[in-house]
């Protein structure tokens, strides 16, 4: 979207989101992550490296904040006033939230990031010119920029033989991020198409959810009302849409479901369930 485009159409764009979006969606992939089951073990994050050809940047570049961990586990300490964190750590698996009204999309000067009919924020690598506006605009900080070419450093021979041929390896100057394992979605959709049937719930499992030892991550299509993820969203009264709508939807404020930065009106596709602690 160019600057002119933004200036002329911004309100239409926002209005579209507020009125349920301006897309004819085929799927709306979403997650429900139970933080009470997340133990912060990094299995999801490492599975993501394996599945998505993520580059290992090394110590110095990691220090500069150039790591490429699409799926990362953030760890917070609550109860900072106490001598010890008596309720343990707060772990947060954080990946692209595939926002319905994504702030990364309209700022791209070359439309390299766009909204797919699956409800995903896709990144077209060979269109990206590396302006990094999208990353700058992402409230979740889940966009990762290739400051270097990592071919030689990350995959010295024969390490490159592990690369997943279903997706590309990104080069210097390109922005990348979690795709909800788009290559897996692609193959599941293709299979369903060939068999002339809809995609079944549970058929599509991203690498992170697949590996999770406690099954904290549930993935599915919120347009399929019988899907596990739909049921969880419904059970916790979390709805698609912008703040006013979702605030009204939540009749029982004690239910655990929430979306991070709901108030920013970005309509994330990831619902988290609050961590539970027994105070003894």
């Amino acid at each position: 979207m160019s600057l002119d485009n933004i200036l002329n159409h911004w309100s239409d764009y926002r209005k579209g989101a507020e009125e349920g979006g301006h897309h004819d969606y085929e799927h709306r992939w979403a997650m429900a992550i139970n933080l009470d089951l997340c133990i912060g073990c990094n299995a999801c994050s490492t599975a993501c490296y394996a599945e998505n050809n993520l580059a290992v940047v090394g110590k110095e570049r990691f220090e500069k904040g150039q790591a490429m961990h699409w799926m990362r586990i953030e760890r917070y300490w609550d109860q900072q006033e106490l001598e010890h964190p008596e309720q343990g750590a707060s772990f947060l698996p954080m990946m692209c939230q595939q926002c319905g009204a994504a702030t990364c999309e309209p700022v791209c000067p070359v439309a390299a990031t766009y909204h797919t009919p699956d409800g995903l924020n896709a990144q077209v690598y060979n269109r990206c010119i590396g302006s990094r506006y999208c990353s700058n605009n992402c409230p979740f900080r889940v966009r990762y920029f290739n400051f270097y070419s990592y071919y030689e450093s990350s995959w010295p021979e024969p390490m490159e033989q592990q690369l997943n041929p279903d997706i590309s390896v990104r080069d210097k100057g390109v922005m990348e991020k979690c795709t909800f394992c788009m290559q897996r979605i692609r193959s599941v959709k293709d299979k369903a198409f060939m068999e002339d049937r809809p995609v079944q719930d549970g058929e599509m499992v991203p690498a992170c959810a697949q590996s999770c030892p406690t099954s904290a991550i549930v993935f599915g299509d919120t347009m399929d009302e019988s899907s596990m993820v739909s049921k969880l969203w419904k059970k916790h009264q979390v709805e698609r849409g912008v703040y006013q709508k979702t605030k009204l939807a939540k009749k029982d404020a004690d239910l655990r479901g929430y979306r991070i930065f709901e108030e920013l009106n970005v309509d994330p596709s990831v619902m988290y369930l609050e961590r539970v602690r027994e105070d003894i």
């Binding site: 933080l35 954080m94 409230p139 105070d279």
Partner: peptide
């Protein structure tokens, strides 16, 4: 840390905690 300022959630609800 991306969404938070290092170790603290600085008052935002990133990881919510509720009593059992």
């Amino acid at each position: 840390m991306g969404t938070g300022a290092g170790d603290s959630q600085v008052g935002r609800k990133l990881v919510g905690t509720v009593p059992v």
